[in-house]
Design a protein around this nucleic acid. Structure first.
Lengths: 182, 182
DNA sequence: CAGAAACGTTTGTCAAGATGAACAGCGGTC
DNA sequence: GACCGCTGTTCATCTTGACAAACGTTTCTG
């Protein structure tokens, strides 16, 4: 799929949603309406400044080029989800991203009990982990530089090195967002 | 910040990371190395086909343009973070990706007290919200179809329609991951 | 029914991006 | 030293994106 086709569709969709005419959008973005017309026709090869101006005027993220499909809803009750267990831990995936396009983002709920620890090998290069502590205290992070976190603490660290999750208190519940590179 | 500056930095960074020379990348992307040279110098205004070719050759997500300077690790203690408050609620951002347009994923910790509700207007098309309940019970979701959630429940729903967060119990603490389209 | 005011399209002009060749700077090899 | 292979840069040429103006349509309004 050529990028221009995607832009054409996305542009039409977003402009319709914003309820703007070609002329109005052109003025707001500081572009010629002929330019927008041709882009929506799937012709041309816009520069990023042009796209930047459009995205800003429409107030959409730059990645709006990727003609995104309408999202659905998912509900995972506590205790459901795909368990990925080991001794003393309950790592449960609530959202496993299904393939391309775009970067993969998985979400986990992570229960640790009584000083149990989980070693994690290095994930693919560029992986980033986001952790928020829900309850309890835990030592989390790269193996050589973990941080002790309490309820509400947020910690972001590279996931492409060996790292550790270790409960310090009786129990600890973490919210873990894993962000893989494309 | 002009987009070209961001691209210049990002391109240098990614190319160095891939260990490619200008000539090598130029050949792999099917571009002239002079083009790449000028882009890295922060000059010009590349077309999306050019950027697409670069991103494909480097095998990076398209949003790499936005100099996602790796602040490798970030630690936000509970109570820190940027508060976005309204009556009876404490919405606190722990991770705000900087500046539209671009691929954005924001993380929030969200405290609701005593039946307080927060109405949220529609976010940009394609936005997806992920919610995990830390404690208490809350009614969350699109305004016309909210779900009542308890501790540990995970709920994913579209953020591009009007939606609501409402505490059912005394207090409720939520973790909210907002995912904007790329 | 004019007439006006929008809509989106098409066209010619000009500025600017993309190109390839020629360039200078470095490090190793015979 | 002379030669090679590589690095990244600068330059003239050609292509093409962005623009304004004019166009044909449709829609509202007096």
């Amino acid at each position: 799929m050529t990028p221009i086709t995607l832009i054409a569709r996305a542009l039409k969709r977003e402009r319709a949603k914003a309820g703007l005419s070609l002329s109005a959008l052109a003025e707001q973005a500081g572009l010629a309406k002929s330019t927008l017309s041709q882009l929506e026709a799937g012709q041309g090869n816009p520069s990023i400044e042009t796209l930047w101006a459009i995205a800003t005027a429409l107030d959409v993220p730059f990645g709006f080029l990727f003609d995104t499909a309408p999202p659905d809803m998912t509900l995972v009750r506590a205790g459901e989800g795909t368990p990925i267990n080991s001794e003393g831990t309950d790592l449960r995936a609530v959202l496993l991203s299904n393939g391309p396009p775009g970067s993969r983002r998985d979400l986990y709920r992570f229960d640790l009990v009584a000083g149990a620890a989980r070693d994690a090998a290095a994930h693919p290069q560029g992986t980033i982990e986001h952790v928020i502590v829900s309850s309890g205290r835990a030592r989390v992070g790269p193996k050589d530089a973990p941080e002790e976190l309490g309820p509400g603490d947020y910690f972001r660290f590279p996931g492409d090195v060996a790292h550790i999750y270790e409960a310090v208190s009786e129990r600890a519940t973490l919210f873990l967002a894993m962000e893989f590179p494309r």
